[in-house]
């Protein structure tokens, strides 16, 4: 019978990503309820030393495939390795991050394992001994409760939503043979072009300061950038601002952009169209600064300031400077 709550730990450049601890902690909760173990799969090159960190976040066993061919993430190599070990051990539940890599890997595993998955979940629990996953659908206009009727029951978890909680367990390392032949792989990474701006990626930022149609132009983003720099925040944009050419596509938050869940999201001159809300409504705190008191963003905001953003934002920066 299928058993155990499994996760795939995500690492890059020799370090585990924060979301790995989030999913480990979420897995621990489910496993405690079921009275089962948490097992992690860690694939990479020179990554065995990272296993102990997973133990700190409640992982009982870490299955490690450590090989030079896993130096770069490629779908075919990683999904073959994970599918093999998960199948051999008859996992009951399998959790991944809904990060860029996790989205790709988890979906490929759905195919390899011929199972079902609830994507980009914001809540998971056990009901009647099975995984019950809750996720936004239709840009967050609807929430779906998903039950997976095949094994492993898969879910991918939205980054920054689940708390990483230290809870030390054995973290025993089990090496496994991934059974992947390097020369059979059909894809490779030719080049990794790093963003050298030094700014946090939107999907990983703790704070995002975002500007919309009310910014009126590309140069005007300076007021937002100043506040963002002070707070160590990333700069985001609404679709209107991206379509107007004021900001690059990679800054877009929303239904056709990025989904973010920072601790603090400051929306400046953003009306709060459903398309934008879809990308940021799982933020922990939302601030809206907009001169239109009727803007729908205020219905979602924890704190609202009805005023001209060009008057308020520089004052916020000045005030924050006093205490930071």
């Amino acid at each position: 019978m299928a058993k155990g709550v499994w996760i795939v730990a995500e690492q890059r450049d020799g370090a585990l990503r924060k979301v790995s601890f989030e999913i480990a902690s979420a897995a621990r909760k489910l496993a405690d309820e079921l009275g089962e173990e948490v097992c992690a799969v860690l694939v990479g090159s020179g990554v065995e030393g990272l296993a102990s960190e997973l133990g700190k976040y409640g992982v009982d066993k870490i299955y490690v495939a450590d090989d030079a061919m896993f130096a770069d993430y490629t779908t075919d190599a990683y999904s073959a390795a994970v599918a093999k070990v998960v199948k051999e051990n008859d996992a009951s539940i399998l959790l991944l991050a809904s990060s860029v890599q996790g989205k790709d890997l988890s979906s490929s595993l759905v195919g390899k394992l011929a199972t079902g998955m609830a994507s980009d979940c914001t809540e998971i629990k056990i009901a009647d001994g099975k995984l019950l996953a809750i996720r936004p659908m239709y840009a967050g206009k609807v929430f779906g409760e998903i039950v997976v009727d095949s094994y492993p029951q898969m879910a991918s978890l939205r980054p920054n939503v689940f708390a990483a909680v230290e809870n030390a367990k054995a973290g025993e390392v089990v090496k496994f043979d991934a059974g992947v032949a390097a020369d059979a792989l059909k894809t490779k990474v030719l080049e990794t072009q790093k963003d050298t701006s030094g700014k946090a990626d939107l999907t990983e930022a703790d704070i995002i300061v975002s500007g919309g149609r009310g910014m009126k132009g590309a140069d005007e983003y300076k007021v937002i950038e100043e506040l963002a720099d002070l707070l160590g925040a990333a700069v985001g944009a609404s679709r209107a601002a991206v379509d107007a050419g004021w900001r690059p596509q990679s800054d877009q938050v929303g239904q056709t952009g990025k989904v973010v869940s920072p601790n603090l999201y400051i929306a400046c001159g953003i009306s709060g169209a459903i398309q934008h809300l879809a990308g940021m409504s799982s933020s922990k705190y939302i601030v809206a600064i907009n001169k239109d008191a009727e803007a729908p963003i205020f219905a979602r905001a924890d704190y609202g300031v009805v005023d001209d953003l060009f008057k308020v934002v520089p004052e916020v920066t000045a005030e924050a400077k006093k205490i930071l």
């Binding site: 490779k188 990474v189 030719l190 990794t192 072009q193 790093k194 990626d201």
Partner: peptide, 8 residues
């Protein structure tokens, strides 16, 4: 996140 890949 923080980079772009060229994949073949």
């Amino acid at each position: 996140e923080g980079a772009q890949l060229v994949i073949e």
